[in-house]
C-alpha cells in the first residue's frame, strides 16, 4: 500500500542526528544557563521527537488527516498546560 520505502542509509542518518542531539542536550545541561536551560532542553527534545515522528513514524508521508490531527492533539495538550497556568502562575 505505502509505496514509500526509506533507505537504511537515510534512517541511519536520522539516528545519527538523534544521537548527536542527545549528546548536545547532555552537554548543554552541564552549562549553567539559568532559567534558559529548561527551554533549551525542551527545544532539543522537540527537535528529536520531530525527527522520530517525521522519519521513523512516517509522519512526513502521511495524509493531512493524520498530520493535522497529530498537531491538534499536541495543541490540546499545550492548551491544557497553558490554561492551567492561569491558575498556577498567578496564585
Amino acid at each position: 500500500m505505502d509505496p514509500h520505502i526509506q533507505s537504511y542509509k537515510k534512517l541511519g542518518g536520522v539516528l545519527g542526528v538523534l544521537l548527536v542531539l542527545t549528546a548536545v542536550t547532555v552537554g548543554v545541561s552541564r552549562l549553567d544557563l539559568g532559567s534558559l536551560s529548561l527551554g533549551v532542553a525542551m527545544v532539543i527534545a522537540g527537535t528529536k521527537s520531530a525527527l522520530v515522528l517525521l522519519f521513523f513514524m512516517h509522519l512526513k508521508y502521511e495524509s493531512w488527516l493524520i498530520r493535522g490531527s497529530f498537531l491538534m492533539t499536541i495543541g490540546v495538550l499545550a492548551l491544557f498546560i497553558g490554561f492551567m497556568f492561569w491558575d498556577v502562575g498567578f496564585r
Partner: peptide, 8 residues
C-alpha cells in the same frame, strides 16, 4: 484558584 483564572 487565582483570581486571574476566575476571570479567564
Amino acid at each position: 484558584m487565582s483570581d486571574v483564572a476566575v476571570f479567564v
